[in-house]
Structure formats: structure tokens, C-alpha cells
Design a protein around this nucleic acid. Structure first.
Lengths: 152, 152
DNA sequence: TTTTTTGCAAATACTTTGCATAACG
DNA sequence: CGTTATGCAAAGTATTTGCAAAAAA
């Protein structure tokens, strides 16, 4: 198990290097806050909210502020170093319950439908789903930059 | 095309009946506001926000209030008559970028990971995805009631 | 008529922004 | 040293709640 811990540490190191490399490429400075926030999310398996990340980081850096956490989470998302579960700020609703996918643009927030085409294999529940609870909706979400935003 | 319009109307009628039936089953009253809000979302294909629904409904019912819209959208979700794109209120973050699914409990808001098991077919992009934009993340989202909430 | 729902107003989250100071490269 | 990032405070959105009056069953 000590072995496993070492593996985890190595893995984290690798991700930290990637983080630092991408920061430099983007012209962003590698600050203590960014590193700490990145590590916190990278090591957590509980899909923390901004507030939770803030509380965790504050253990090591009592002076960190919540708005720095928000700012950093957004830039980490933009660098594809973490992903946001669900949407950003406001909720949106869909009355069409037929199985289909959503392409969510992480830049403008627009949501596009993708309906299955003829001959396409149907959705299927992943093996481990049933043991988590009672599934009522399946929704494949693709996140990226939409055509409109790409051409700007 | 008149024919198609008739089909659409019939479809909406069917969904309205289902809506009314489920309201009665849940002991909820079928009010003008609920019916109007349901129809608005059911007929829209733009994944409207609460604010957008509010504006649309206000065309027909100038006195409707935004908080009624919020309340109604939540009860419609609970009745599985519409779905929420993404999560409810607050954003949550995931540092694990390996392909995996999320089981989202619509009652308590908890997010559970489901990792693919050995022998399970891998994720694949749906056919129409590429034409929407540049996909950076794929995330299969299952929505339902988790075990913990079921046993309460 | 009884109970639920609505609209209003106000409160409560959650997230973002402007600006002077601190920290990185 | 020049420039970017941080912390603070305050503002801006999004969503929720308590309560008296209105509407459904």
C-alpha cells in the first residue's frame, strides 16, 4: 500500500507538471494559490463545489479568498485541467424527453441538441449504473466550443 | 404542412393529458399557470432558462410571477415531465478527466462516479457531434434518485 | 368550503468585478 | 522592475421563502 501511495504521488506530480507547463504556455503565472487549488481538485473524488474547494485550500493557506478560488477554477476549466459538472451559472430546461445528446458550449453557454441518426447504436446504461440508484434520465453531454464561437 | 401542424397539436395534447394525469396522481392542482409553463417548455427547443420561460409565459399571462415559474419548473422536474440540463444551483468540479459517467441525484444533488468496467464498450461520439463544434469533454450523465435518498 | 397555489416582497445563495497591494518571472 | 494575480469589499445574478389573498377541487 505504500507502493500505491507512491504511485498516487507520482501521478499527482505528473499532473502538476502538466499544469505548470500549460500555465506557462498561456502566459499565466504559477502562483501558490493556483497550484494549491489545482491539487485540491485533482486529489478530490467528491466533485467539490467552489465553496468546498475554498474550505479545503484554506486549511493550508488561511488567507486565500473565495473569489480567487472562483477565478482559478474558471481558468483551470479553460485550460482543460478540470471539468465542470453540469452547467455554469443558470439552470436550463428541456421538455424533450426522447433520448438525445447535448452539445454545451463552454464559452457562450449555448446548448445544442444532437438527435441519434438512422443506424446509430442506441444508448445503453453503463454496467455500474443500477447500483447507484434509480435512473430516470440519460443524457450524454458533450462539452466544447461551438462553431459560432470558434469562428470569432 | 397543415398536416404536420395537426400532428404537433395532437402530440402536445397527449403530453398535456399526461401532465394532468400526473398532477392528479401527485395531488397537485392543475392550474392555468402550471399548464402554461408546461406547454412553454414542451414546445420550446431552445433549452430555455427560468427567466426565458417567465418571459414567454408572461405574453399570455401578464401577471405570472418569476417565483411561480421557478416553483413550477421544479415540480415538473420532480414529476419527470421535463429535465434540467446540467445541475441545479451550484457548480461542481471534477479533476478526473478519464472517461467516466456521473450519476446525479435529483433529490439531494449528490454526484457519483461510474467508471467503465472491464469488457464494457468504450464511449463513442454520436454521429452529429462534429458539426456542432469542437468537442473537448464527453460526459454521460444519469439522473435519478440515489440509493441513499430512495431508502428515506 | 377547505386546501393548495399564487403573487408580492424580501431574503438568501452563488458568482463576478473594480481596485490597491502583493507576488511572480 | 514590469506585469499579472491576489484579497478585500461591494455589486450583480440566480434562486428560494414567508405570508396574505386568490383559485382549484
Amino acid at each position: 500500500m505504500n507502493f500505491q501511495l507512491n504511485e498516487q504521488k507520482e501521478e499527482l506530480q505528473k499532473r502538476l507538471s502538466r499544469f505548470e507547463k500549460q500555465c506557462r504556455e498561456k502566459g499565466l503565472r504559477v502562483t501558490r494559490q493556483r497550484r494549491e487549488i489545482f491539487c485540491t481538485v485533482a486529489q478530490s473524488s467528491e466533485h467539490p463545489s467552489a465553496e468546498k474547494v475554498f474550505q479545503a485550500v484554506r486549511q493550508k493557506m488561511p488567507n486565500v479568498s473565495l473569489d480567487t478560488v472562483y477565478r482559478t477554477l474558471s481558468s483551470l476549466e479553460e485550460m482543460d485541467l478540470l471539468m465542470r459538472v453540469g452547467l455554469s451559472s443558470k439552470a436550463r430546461f428541456d421538455g424533450d424527453l426522447r433520448p438525445h445528446c447535448h452539445f454545451v458550449c463552454t464559452r457562450c453557454g449555448e446548448v445544442y441538441d444532437i438527435f441519434p441518426q438512422a443506424g446509430e447504436p442506441p444508448f445503453s446504461l453503463p454496467y455500474g449504473a443500477a447500483e447507484k440508484g434509480e435512473v430516470k434520465q440519460i443524457n450524454l453531454q458533450l462539452r466544447g466550443i461551438c462553431k459560432k464561437c470558434c469562428s470569432r
